[in-house]
Nucleic acid binder design. Structure first.
Length: 613
DNA sequence: CCCGTTGCGG
């Protein structure tokens, strides 16, 4: 005996505790020795209980303290803000202020984190101005927290203003700025922050490199991504599960599955998110069979599919029209998980893409809470099915909620109009989008509008619209214009569009087919020959087109010239009958199609689907 | 108190 610990000596001891029994042991010791009455040792005790996740005991210690110092308040506020109890953190903060305790940098940091957790911008700004009044405006910790708050609330420009005013920027606030840019879809600026840091000679860690990997993923910049990966290896920056997962995601998203699997297979430890990154990569790139196989493999490794991998599975199903499998995924979700907004929207999307608009709508109506993306998906569903009127009705209902339509909403709405030939409605709502909702039209919106006008033969107006664009028109816009010119025999504008389209060196057979067909329609045979020559030179992939249809749970694939189907004869007879019936009611077939003589190859992908079922 | 930043998905 005689070794009774002095209250202050308990601090390092408590901080090194990672397990519940040892914290409780020291707690007991503190009670026995009377150290519990010292505020100096109670603050670390609170922090220790909080760090092992026992917020309740931490609060008990806090409540029973005879006198509290600033550290005890901070420990409790930070504990709540880290344990996702932002309202408790904020109520403690208010109580502390009203009791006249002077907050410090840590207090503000904790309170601001709580505000960010609640997305409570108003409260956050109050805390921020109080912090400024207390002289913490230039504090990197406080400023980083404000930065994070603004970024989380989508106020990226306000975040930039805070960032620019920080006198001595460190790694963490730069990382926060980078993730802020990423979350608001501004990867270019995220990379710019990184470049600035590089020029200032800053040392990087895994967290900031992960932000950069994400930037590369959303930019589709494989070169930069590879150099970032290489940098981490050369510098020996430790890569944890998160960093490795973001690398898998980047490679898989960009379709570099060899690289993605290489990183994935070398991971010492994987979790559901790592699997999800690979699965969604396959699904997003149209490798539905691979995606679904990976889900099965994931299960065999002991990971039950959670929300994200189910969403990827649904995406895979909708890409190839696997209604039956999609339904079973839906059933799995209903049985195993609570169907939330994300899964619900994915199921809506699956039903509508698999042809079942009524199921999609039924599910939409059943959803307990619908966010903007759910509405957007349902409006898009009507668009895909050519139901422009219904899309508009739903849009009008959306405007009566407290949700604000965004650029995606309008992209879906305008596309619905263009698929239904509702030209006047399209023009009207395009103007409303700009004037009333202050949404600057993007490439997608212009492409819809050009398609809408050009499809109905108003190619002159479409080309005027293109001329009015502030940004450089992209491929989709010119393709829409060209398609209109092709259908309505508008030679001079079409020629301009065709030239523009070829300038993009598109990697898409369909686009070349359109250009070639346009020249053929215009009797410009040198144009047809020129297009074919470009295709040969650039080695444009000849992806064989095929149709898939699911009948009673069985998947049937049809390629050109493919006679392997066991009902081939019957199908051809029916097709011929339909063809003659259509002609009888006035259908005039287009005979200038170019694609018929392209070589076809059986896709191994497609065999996968068939094998799967 | 020793703080702030972090991976897949609609």
């Amino acid at each position: 005996m005689g070794l009774l610990p002095w209250p202050n000596r308990l601090r390092p001891l408590l901080l090194s505790c990672k397990h519940k029994p040892s914290v409780a042991q020291i707690h007991a010791l503190m009670i026995v020795t009377g150290a519990i009455t010292h505020a100096n040792s109670n603050a670390p005790l609170i922090a220790s209980y909080a760090s092992i996740g026992d917020t309740e005991t931490a609060r008990k210690v806090f409540d029973e303290m005879p006198q509290r110092n600033i550290h005890a308040w901070n420990a409790m506020i930070i504990a709540y803000s880290r344990q996702h109890c932002p309202s408790e953190a904020l109520s403690l903060y208010s109580r502390m202020i009203s009791e006249g305790v002077r907050p410090d940098s840590s207090t503000f940091t904790g309170a601001l984190k709580a505000c960010a957790g609640m997305l409570d911008l108003k409260m956050g700004e109050e805390v921020w101005s109080k912090a400024a009044r207390c002289g913490y405006e230039g504090d990197v910790f406080v400023a980083s927290s404000v930065l994070n708050l603004y970024a989380k609330c989508g106020k990226t420009d306000e975040a930039v203003a805070v960032f620019d005013k920080i006198p001595r920027r460190d790694l963490v606030c730069c990382t926060t700025m980078i993730t802020g840019f990423l979350q608001s879809g501004r990867p270019v600026e995220a990379v710019e922050v990184y470049r600035r840091m590089q020029n200032e000679g800053m040392e990087f860690d895994g967290v900031v490199m992960m932000g950069l990997v994400q930037a590369c993923a959303s930019l589709g910049d494989l070169r930069l991504g590879l150099s970032v990966h290489g940098y981490m290896i050369r510098r020996g920056i430790p890569m944890d599960v998160m960093v490795q997962t973001s690398l898998v995601d980047m490679y898989a998203k960009s379709g570099h599955f060899e690289l993605a699997s290489c990183v994935f297979n070398r991971m010492p430890y994987r979790n559901a998110v790592s699997w999800g990154a690979l699965i969604s990569g396959f699904a997003q790139n149209g490798f539905a069979g691979h995606a679904l196989e990976m889900v099965v493999e994931m299960q065999s490794c002991g990971f039950e599919p959670e929300s994200a991998s189910l969403v990827s599975s649904l995406l895979a199903c909708s890409q190839v029209g696997l209604l039956k499998l999609g339904k079973s995924v839906h059933g799995y979700i209903l049985k195993r998980l609570e169907i939330g907004q994300v899964c619900g929207t994915a199921v809506i999307d699956m039903y509508s893409k698999c042809g079942s608009l009524s199921y999609a709508r039924a599910l939409f109506d059943q959803m307990v809470s619908r966010d903007l993306i759910s509405w957007n998906a349902m409006i898009a569903s009507y668009g895909i099915h050519g139901c422009g009127e219904e899309a508009l009705t739903l849009f009008l209902q959306l405007t009566e909620t407290n949700l604000k339509p965004d650029h995606s909403t309008f992209a879906s709405l305008l596309s619905a109009f263009s698929h239904s030939g509702l030209v006047e409605e399209g023009l009207h709502w395009f103007d409303v989008m700009v004037a009333k909702y202050k949404i600057p039209p993007g490439e997608k919106h212009y492409a819809c509008m050009v398609d809408l006008l050009a499809r109905s033969g108003r190619v002159e107006e479409a080309s005027e619209l293109i001329a009015s664009m502030n940004t450089e028109p992209g491929l989709a816009v010119w393709v829409a214009l060209l398609a209109g010119c092709h259908n309505h025999r508008k030679l001079s504008i079409g020629e301009i569009a065709a030239k523009k389209v070829l300038e993009f060196n598109p990697d898409d057979l369909g686009v070349y087919a359109l250009v070639s067909n346009f020249y053929a329609m215009a009797r410009r045979w040198e144009g047809v020959a020129g297009t074919k020559k470009i295709m040969k030179q650039t080695g444009t992939k000849k992806v064989p087109g095929y149709s898939l249809v699911e009948v009673n749970g069985e998947l049937h694939a049809f390629l050109m010239e493919d006679k392997s189907h066991h009902h081939h004869e019957d199908i051809m007879l029916l097709l011929n009958k339909l063809y003659h019936d259509m002609r009888a009611i006035g259908y005039v077939p287009k005979s200038e199609a170019l694609l018929h003589n392209f070589e076809e190859a059986h896709s191994s992908e497609q065999r996968k689907f068939i094998k799967l079922l």
